[in-house]
Design a binder for these strands. Structure first.
Length: 291
DNA sequence: TCTGTCTCCTGAGAGC
DNA sequence: TGCTCTCAGGAGACAG
């Protein structure tokens, strides 16, 4: 599930394929939950535009076009943005994965889940947006047009510091984990990195945010930044469907301390990692190391 | 304003 | 083997 590190890695690897190049043609699937802007409109508006830059705001990718317009992309839970040359079992259904050895896999052909195909002018691969569960979003912003989704975003999680996090927790009765997942407070943190950062800071996910001390906020802010940076370095987490634009897996899933390790021993104290629901999300923590 | 709940979606895996 | 059910989660809408 793409969070800030996966979106940032995607941005860094997809930008060289797009920036400075022109979109020759566009194909889409029929209208669905993915298309905030109707697919027919995207097919009309995108061809002929040159990509100037690919930016990131929280978990949003912003493809800046030559006339000032922007294609806004959110990967949701299962969104994949990748090159047409990518090869990965994660781009196949489980049935196809099981029946084909990796060396037998042919090139990826756009399927029913490939909601946007950007054919790029000249040499080089095309770019696909695929999303099985359709929690991702595609949205066109006209030149100068903003969007409430972007306006509501809090500061980027890579830039959080202790005083700002401490201030955000004051008078908040919600669990600290709910606060970390609130994109209007902190843009970019999702379930995996909230659990990991809380473990490293020694704070239980269900603790009321307002009960965090100044010192704990300081440590938590530092661990959030550390864990996000480390994940970017390793190429993000390929826990379910996430795949890098070149088809490679991320590496951070091998460094997880608590996320999706329910029933396994804590790497610090050997106590058993537990899972409970906090803010309607599964939260994993060590009952000994975190208080 | 804050918090909690529901909803959207679909593949995987468990249970029968 | 095949069917049914549950679960996973980002974020908007809505109710209290």
């Amino acid at each position: 599930m793409p969070e800030l590190p996966e979106v940032e890695v995607t941005r860094r690897r997809i930008a060289p394929l797009l920036v400075g190049r022109r979109i020759a043609a566009v194909a889409t699937t029929p209208p669905s939950y993915v298309f905030v802007t109707p697919p027919g409109r995207l097919r009309r508006l995108l061809p002929g535009r040159r990509v100037e830059a690919v930016d990131r705001l929280g978990k949003y990718l912003l493809v800046r076009l030559d006339d000032g317009a922007t294609l806004m992309i959110h990967l949701g839970m299962t969104g994949q943005l990748f090159s047409s040359e990518a090869r990965s079992p994660r781009l196949l259904s489980a049935t196809a994965r099981a029946s084909l050895a990796p060396e037998e896999q042919a090139g990826f052909e756009p399927d029913a889940h490939t909601h946007l195909v950007l054919e790029i002018e000249g040499k080089g691969p095309d770019v696909y947006f695929r999303d099985v569960r359709k929690f991702g979003k595609l949205l066109w912003l006209a030149p100068g047009e903003g969007h409430p989704r972007l306006d509501r975003l809090g500061g980027d999680a890579l830039e959080i510091d202790g005083p700002r996090l401490f201030a955000a927790t004051r008078k908040r009765k919600a669990p600290i984990k709910a606060l970390l997942l609130d994109q209007s407070v902190l843009a970019g943190v999702g379930n995996i990195y909230a659990d990991e950062a809380l473990f490293l800071a020694g704070v239980r996910p269900g603790r009321r945010a307002a009960r965090l001390t100044r010192k704990e906020a300081e440590v938590l802010a530092r661990e959030i930044v550390k864990v996000l940076r480390r994940s970017i370095e390793t190429g993000g987490s390929s826990i379910s469907d996430y795949v890098n634009p070149d088809g490679s897996d991320g590496g951070y899933q091998d460094e997880r301390r608590v996320y999706a390790r329910k029933g396994e021993p804590c790497l610090e104290c050997r106590a058993i990692i537990v899972r409970r629901v906090v803010a309607q999300r599964s939260a994993h923590y060590c009952p000994v190391c975190q208080s």
